[in-house]
């Protein structure tokens, strides 16, 4: 193994342990606020791990991933509402408050939405792709706002956090651990994907689509599958975030959210395994630390983003762990 690789592995391990240790310590000290903060980091990171498949590995700058994030959130909210009111869902199906079922529904809903969105968007590239994904997400955003059955503009409260077999999801620490577990699962999935044949084709499509075609692999199909998987992971993160906040609103679907996810990845290091984790930690840290001094904390975030884009293209991970090497 090359030194750059093991160095990255060290950085990854430190980040993973840090994200685990802080809420454990905070919980022991009775500071549940920090546990919630860490849960938010884990979930933003998971959403960004999903986007990182499309954006980082595939070079597909989706400016519409909030659609999937929000769709996942609404899946959790709608299921919880129906279960709370004992109303069946479509076709007389019973709503469930079991998280595994909700995640499955969220992932499937996002997959089903991502397939046509991707199939249309991926016929374009570059700035057009960005605009089309944005347009689709905005359509879903305005649809959510104008649909009063599920709260419309006001959003949808989740009165009781959904359940997970064997875990009391109402305690902050156990819910954090559940989310952390899902983040690790997402990272493992990302890693398998990146190193597989599919990942090789996807990364080649980003580097040189003509080359990929010339060996007989059609880039479109590979990108579409990546886009769908990417959307599904982001959707599950959305379901978890809705349960964390016990609330879901159209703001989860807005383009600000799409931008935020992109910013996380750029800050942390795009295409890197732990890029989204580093990015989410940095982002939430700024939001919290600077946000307590000034409402205009995003101005400083903007400056830092500018610095990263100009001087540290590889993001935080590129800065600490050096350039990525591909075998």
């Amino acid at each position: 193994m090359r030194p750059a690789l093991s160095r990255e592995a060290t950085v990854n391990a430190v980040l993973a342990l840090l994200l685990l240790a802080i809420p454990l310590a905070a919980s022991a000290a009775g500071q549940t606020f920090y546990v919630t903060l860490a849960t938010r980091i884990a979930l933003l990171a998971l959403a960004a791990v999903g986007l990182n498949i499309a954006l980082g590995l595939g070079g597909l700058v989706s400016f519409g991933h909030a659609a999937f994030f929000g769709l996942g959130g609404y899946a959790a909210g709608i299921m919880a509402t129906h279960a709370f009111n004992s109303e069946p869902l479509l076709f007389g199906l019973e709503a469930s408050t079991s998280m595994p079922v909700i995640w499955l529904v969220a992932a499937l809903a996002c997959g089903v939405a991502a397939l046509p969105i991707g199939a249309v968007s991926l016929r374009t590239t570059g700035v057009y792709f960005i605009m089309i994904t944005l347009a689709f997400a905005q359509m879903i955003y305005y649809f959510a706002i104008s649909w009063p059955a599920y709260g419309g503009e006001d959003g949808l409260p989740i009165y009781v956090r959904n359940s997970f077999p064997g875990i009391n999801t109402a305690t902050p620490l156990s819910y954090f651990l559940l989310c952390y577990g899902m983040l690790i699962l997402g990272l493992v999935l990302f890693r398998f994907l990146r190193d597989s044949r599919f990942g090789a084709a996807l990364q080649a499509a980003r580097q040189n689509a003509t080359r990929l075609s010339a060996v007989g692999i059609a880039p479109f199909q590979i990108r579409l599958v990546a886009f769908v998987i990417s959307a599904m992971i982001t959707g599950v993160a959305g379901a978890l975030l809705a349960d964390l906040n016990r609330f879901v609103s159209p703001s989860m679907l807005s383009w600000h959210m799409s931008g935020e996810l992109i910013v996380l990845i750029i800050l942390g290091g795009k295409g890197r395994l732990f890029g989204p984790v580093a990015g989410a930690m940095l982002y939430v840290l700024f939001e919290y630390a600077l946000g307590s001094y000034t409402e205009r904390w995003q101005l400083f975030l903007g400056l830092i983003l500018l610095g990263v884009v100009l001087f540290a293209r590889g993001g935080l991970l590129g800065l600490i762990a050096g350039r990525e090497r591909h075998g």
Partner: peptide, 29 residues
């Protein structure tokens, strides 16, 4: 060429294509 990939990985892409579907997600290349 795929500029970031090594010479080996560039050739591996062709071998992979020749062997069939690239929709394989788990085994590391």
């Amino acid at each position: 060429l795929a500029q970031e990939f090594s010479a080996l990985r560039n050739v591996m892409l062709a071998i992979q294509a020749r062997q069939g579907s690239s929709l394989r997600f788990f085994r590391p290349v």
